[in-house]
Amino acid sequence: MNEVIRLEDVWVRYGDIVVLEGINLSVYEHDFLGIIGPNGGGKTTLLKVILGLVKPVRGRVTVLGDTPERSRRFVGYVPQITLFDREFPATVLDVVLMGRLGRKGILGKYGKEDLKVAYDALESVEMLELKDRRIGELSGGQLQRVLLARALVANPKILLLDEPTASVDEPTKTNLYKLLKKMNDKVTILLVSHDMGVISSYVEKIACLNRKLFYHGSPEMEGEAVEETYQCPIYLIAHGFPHRVLKKHKRGK
């Protein structure tokens, strides 16, 4: 299998604070990797490193065999919806078309092809009917799907999602994951979340991030890894886990 993302001993600092420490990560084509970790653990920063928006002070980042900057146009990014100004004057279609910015050229205008791709993407996330809605009038789940559509119109090979299920209700979460699962045939997916419950029943591989990365091949993650990442005993978190996730061996069989 092809390695699509590779991080070697990556360190990131904001001022004096070390945010990422010696990260090594390999993501292969068609992976569905979930990275969990507490807030402030560096999850968003990790995604920004892969996008080339944050420069590591040390280490090497390779995306699709090239630098992050040069591979950007093959990477779709779905940021956290909580960061958005809900009053912003743009419609659903306006936002989705932003995903085509890299293709149209800086002085160009969106053409018929762009519109068609945008409509298709909206259709695939079941938001076409609301294309003329102002984004402030959407629910959290709807906005999340719009941002997913925006990432999809660039026809990415890799999809990076930041807390895709934050402020979204349970049925919407499940739908979103099913949708991602379906797309996983075509794209490699890397998502980060602090919400372990839902993440682990859909992703194929899981890693924990709290400044350092603890990588584990399958979602049946070891109790120690979770403990070390969250710095709290495993049983406190285990309530949120779907049953199949936790191996029983840690809990006195």
């Binding site: 928006l53 932003m98 910015l101 925006r150």
Partner: peptide, 23 residues
């Protein structure tokens, strides 16, 4: 007229615009 889409995108989500290749 020429930079409308860029102005809109940069105002809405600067990181995304940058990641999409907008200077």
């Amino acid at each position: 007229y020429f930079l409308y889409e860029e102005f809109l995108a940069v105002s809405f989500d600067e990181d995304f615009a940058k990641a999409s290749g907008v200077p």
